[in-house]
Design a binder for these strands. Structure first.
Lengths: 188, 188, 188, 188
DNA sequence: GATGAATGAGTATTCATTCAT
DNA sequence: AATGAATGAATACTCATTCAT
């Protein structure tokens, strides 16, 4: 993929896209994104072939960032429940404290522009999290359910919880904890 | 006196919209929907003021149908778990056997065109289901969590499960059952 | 850096608009104007925000051109009557020898798309002419009538005369002269 | 032309058209006119073949009414100047006291929808007025100018004066008188 | 004749992408 | 490589007119 042109410009476009998508949705003109990034509209297309291409890169990158934050400094010496709890709270914390990234990501997930390859890459990024989940449910009631299904259920719970945390910030921590308990009951 | 507005035409447009949205998304031209419905371009607008108006009616109607099917012939004499189980399987069955409706609904939920009023109406339609959920969690671990949050978590599980059932029809029943057990563990 | 906005293209659009409006009226499609100008559909909108914007610029520009021609090389050393006569004949000459501009202008004057600002600008352009008129009626019978009213009457006479000159070119000069005499009797 | 259907409905449509054109212009939908007239939109087309047909009838009728009022109860025993003055003030009075008719007429005059035949009919209606004008200028400075030209100049003065009378009602009478004096100076 | 639903041609404006400078 | 003007396909909605009832 050979580092193209200026990495700065490229990431400026990415950040701008996040802000614009968060506020205006995926239908926002590329020209708007370019202007927000301080670049000409033509320039956007030297960094990304098409609008959809930009969206795909953004999707993968956001998913990766989310997963990385969730798994950051995992207390590997602690028991699995504590590791999961830590991962869970890091995940939701990232989402609630980066609302624009979260909102952009939410739109991208359901977009038809995201290719199967990108979805696959998104899953890859979640591999660590899923691994943790796998250990969690090892002896639990869902031990025979396809792991990808369990992972999808977990993600669904996370997304819903994030919505409530953002919507009702005063009780964000309680929502986060309640949802984790629910998840744990579900799988472990 | 004059040709009366025909309920048939109206529902032909609705059905066409479901099919077209399922296959082409919300960005599909109104002309395409009209043609699929076998009516003229302009006729669509004698039945719906705007494209968004059509979307809103469609959303509310689909949500209502879904809820009605889910609650249909509930075994009121059985215990609450059996009632929930029945509701759950009816719900998921409807979604998996009406994949176009399901897909259209999934797009509509996240559309900016859907007004708060329609979202409200959608919630109203779910009232019976939520009532059932309320009784289910009465003495359960989530008894103190806001009911709307629990309901949202349930919906998230349902949607995810539906995806897996459609994707892997051979094991649809198992997915359905596994998810219900998970839900029950979560709330009861 | 990039291809600069071209004054040529802009005026090509303006000229095309004059021709098209003259022959098809203000209802003519912007696409027709663009084609006549030899530019793309979309290009018209990089030079003018809206169709109405184009119309307003056109109106002001035509009015200004008309006034400029009328006042061009005024024989300042001659008496006021001769100055007025010169102005009058230049005015009507411009209109009759630029029938498309004249016709376009006639449509634009009565268009709802022309903003008060543009009408104001149009009046500004006529200021020199009105000044001449003011001196002409200084000691005449209309000395106490509001100047703007007298000016409007003069314009009405001019427009009507132009129509007859175009309609009956063989006697254009006579019409022009007869109308000027009439005007002079009216005001001086 | 055989009195068609109900004369009441027909004139209801005409009156409605006057009001609607005055307020919305010639671009107003026929459906709006029909509704204002209390008729179905389809009905409008049993009384007038096309929208343009309605406009033409309206034009001729308004012009005729205007001319009739102007010539009503002319003091035939008085001298020609007094007859002209009376006609003039009746004319302008009609216009200023029927602003909707006046506004509609003003739009219709410049409309492309008005056929040469209708314009001709409009002129016919003005015949009496023109006759009066002819006698007025009999020995005046414009005695050799084509009568139709003089008539057009007079109409132009009238229209302009009406505008000022409506715009500045407090001085309407003065404007009316000043313009008549100007006209008289012009022709007699 | 009256009604108003059905028709479908017509149009300003937007925007992803290309390309001249 | 950067710029931003040029392109032209795409689309919701309107409205005169027709026609089924």
């Amino acid at each position: 993929m050979a580092r193209p042109r200026s990495e700065d410009r490229r990431s400026a476009i990415m950040s701008a896209a996040i802000r614009i998508i968060a506020s205006q949705g995926l239908g926002a003109p590329t020209a708007t994104i370019a202007k927000e990034a301080g670049v000409s509209n033509g320039s956007l297309f030297t960094y990304f072939d098409t609008k959809a291409d930009l969206f795909n890169h953004l999707y993968v990158e956001l998913k990766a960032e989310m997963a990385a934050v969730a798994m950051d400094r995992l207390p590997v010496e602690s028991d699995i429940r504590q590791q999961m709890a830590r991962m869970w709270s890091q995940w939701l914390l990232w989402a609630t404290s980066s609302p624009e990234k979260r909102r952009a990501l939410a739109q991208l997930v359901v977009s038809d522009d995201i290719t199967p390859e990108s979805h696959q890459a998104g899953k890859q990024a979640m591999a660590g999290i899923v691994k943790l989940l796998e250990r969690s449910r090892e002896n639990g009631p869902m031990r025979d359910v396809p792991l990808s299904f369990v992972a999808a259920l977990m993600s669904a719970l996370a997304d819903t919880t994030i919505d409530f945390m953002i919507q009702d910030p005063a009780n964000a921590d309680q929502h986060c904890a309640a949802a984790f308990d629910a998840l744990w009951r579900m799988v472990a």
